[in-house]
């Protein structure tokens, strides 16, 4: 498909390959932190420390966006694995 072709072209570009690991790491951190906030909010109620969270709208937003981005870039992840770039 044309759209997927565009993604593949971007993936195979040198700047993309070089920075994809950093982006992937940042996405994982985002998912982990926002996921933790959502889980704690559900379990303990509104949080006051270390963050003040009464309704976890923003963590939900970031969790969903990061998760989606990770899904869309999953192919890029596979490409990186084949090239075995050094870890950051």
């Amino acid at each position: 498909m044309a759209v997927a072709g565009v993604f593949e072209a971007v993936d195979s570009s040198i700047p993309c390959k070089a920075q994809a690991r950093i982006v992937r790491f940042a996405l994982r951190i985002t998912v982990a932190v926002s996921g933790a906030v959502i889980g704690l909010q559900a379990l303990l109620g509104p949080l006051t420390f270390p963050l003040k969270v009464t309704k976890p709208v923003n963590p939900e937003d970031w969790f969903a966006l990061a998760l989606l981005t990770m899904l869309v870039t999953a192919d890029a992840t596979k490409n990186l694995a084949r090239k075995s770039l050094p870890p950051i």
Binding site: I38, W62, L65, L68
Partner: peptide, 14 residues
Amino acid sequence: LLRTWAILFFPVNW
């Protein structure tokens, strides 16, 4: 990009 996906992933009435 944010709210639509957040609600789809977390359909919880807070």
